[in-house]
Design a protein around this nucleic acid. Sequence first.
DNA 1: CCCTGATTCGC
DNA 2: GCGAATCAGG
Length: 187
Amino acid sequence: MSWTDDRVATLTKMWGEGQSASQIAKELGGVTRNAVIGKVHRLGLSNRATSGNKGGAKPKAAAKPAAARAAKPTAKAKPKAAPANAAPKPVLPPRKAIIPAGQPLPPQPSANEISPEALATVREVEKKAKKIGLMELTERTCKWPIGDPATEEFWFCGLPSEPGKPYCEAHVGVAFQPMSARRDRRR
DNA sequence: CCCTGATTCGC
DNA sequence: GCGAATCAGG
């Protein structure tokens, strides 16, 4: 894959929106997050919006040559990274949350369709939910939606998901109920 | 361990 | 110019 104008445009846009390098890489496909970061730097848009940067930017300490690492990483001499830049994320408010495609998400189950025990467990877990936004979802975060997408009261569980599953343990439990449980619940 | 970006340097 | 390897940190 090469950096076509198109892909660069996507990269620039997403980076500007505060998307992480890995997310951008996934979106683009065919590149790793390293590639994305490398490109970002080459494009010179590494520091995300240096806010309130008045007067003059000072060069800070000149970058250490760090030639010491030439041959062997024997010594751990590290030049200490960079011109720290506190990045104030733009972060767009999750107004109309949109559930990402990919794996089909089961609809928000009505409370009265879940067994009291499971419901209790879920409620408990949801207290500990990380309340992450759409942007924070990854392959390993529970994608269980909590709340009403039409309101501000909406977020995703965000707890560590079970390997290969879209949800955390508790939510997997209510999402994939055995047939028997379903029948028993019937009234 | 999961993730983040930053830097270096052989290609 | 590119990006894997590596580093530093949350």
